[in-house]
């Protein structure tokens, strides 16, 4: 046990000595670690889950790195590239480039600024926070939370509870199961999923959604447009809201629902599912569209101020 502890201390000590552009190739046993935290300011980090019982870090540190921490603290293992508070504007610099392999059942969290992150093959929870770095994620089976400012997010084959958010970065996701929550300000969102619960919000970005067997769907936008191909399950519900953004809902199944749509200031409500037309209010620019299809077990409701809502089938 003493030898084991000494070896950890030795490894940590050697880690702290590794600086500025140095090559890294280090391993620590996973022991009773339940989560691994990774911090890197800029560059690229690749994290892969494998059937192993240790954490292995290999690659190269940033030219301006001041240190490298690789240590266990209780049930948490920390991997951190230490950087100075103020960086030089040297465009020919070598940025950190590390590949980390770890047991696939430990939780992973990553935080970076302009660092890209590639994360895959985890049977555990993962959270990623970055500012301008791009995020690529694949095969995460449990909870996933990704937040970015201007970086793009690609997340595929993801778990049963997923939150993806960006400000101006684009979001492209597929293969979510369970619940999927996506939001953006001006970034575009493209989502294909079989998740029964989906919430998609944006301000001005465009959204293209392809949703199978959705039970509970909420979509809102201020001025962006939303195109959705979807099949709504019986007893499901869809809620739409926009200011000037348009919705185009294309139902892939024989939707059986009560429809209650409203445009309060000039938006058009176009129904191509049945022959029922929107009725304009006697006074003012608002209009309403109300009708039912099939056994009306589901509900589709929504409102827009001046946007259009178009309903089509296949």
């Amino acid at each position: 046990m003493n030898i084991f502890k000494s070896s950890i201390v030795l490894l940590t000590t050697t880690s702290l000595l590794a600086v500025a552009g140095e090559k890294i190739d280090q391993t620590l046993p996973i022991g009773d670690v339940t989560s691994v935290e990774v911090e890197n300011l800029r560059g690229k980090i690749k994290i892969v889950g494998q059937s192993v019982d240790s954490v292995h870090v290999v690659g190269e540190l940033d030219d301006e790195a001041e240190g490298f921490t690789f240590e266990q603290n209780g049930s948490v293992m920390l991997i951190k590239v230490e950087m100075p508070r103020h960086l030089e504007n040297n465009w020919s610099r070598q940025e950190t480039n590390l590949e980390i392999t770890l047991p696939k059942n430990v939780n992973v969290s990553f935080s970076g600024v302009s660092s890209d992150i590639v994360l895959s093959e985890l049977d555990a929870d993962a959270s990623v926070g970055t500012v301008s770095g791009n995020v690529a994620i694949k095969n995460i089976s449990k909870r996933l939370e990704v937040s970015s400012v201007s970086g793009d997010i690609d997340a595929h084959q993801i778990g049963n509870l997923t939150h993806l958010s960006s400000v101006s970065g684009n979001i492209d996701t597929s293969g979510a199961s369970g619940s999927l929550f996506v939001k953006s300000v001006s970034g575009d969102i493209e989502a294909k999923s079989t998740a029964p619960i989906v919430e998609a919000k944006n301000v001005s970005g465009e959204m293209v959604l392809s949703l199978n067997s959705v039970e509970d769907l909420m979509m809102s936008t201020v001025s962006g447009d939303i195109d959705a191909d979807l099949s709504l399950d019986n007893n499901g519900q869809i809620k739409l809201s926009s200011v000037s953004g348009d919705f185009h809902l294309n139902f892939l199944n024989d939707v059986q629902a009560i429809f209650r749509l409203r445009a309060s200031a000039g938006g058009d409500l176009i129904n191509r599912l049945t022959s029922v037309k929107a009725k304009e209010d006697k006074y003012g620019p608002s209009s309403r569209l109300s009708f039912e299809t099939g056994n009306a077990s589901s509900r589709v409701s929504g409102s827009t101020v001046s946007g259009n809502i178009v309903l089509t089938h296949k």
């Binding site: 809102s220 201020v222 200011v243 409102s303």
Partner: peptide, 26 residues
């Protein structure tokens, strides 16, 4: 700037349609 513009347009829409709960959520 985009968010501020969006916020103002929603408040303006709410003045016309104060009962719209969807707009309040937006």
């Amino acid at each position: 700037d985009e968010l501020i513009k969006a916020r103002k347009s929603i408040i303006s829409a709410l003045e016309e349609d104060p009962e719209n709960a969807d707009l309040i959520h937006l």
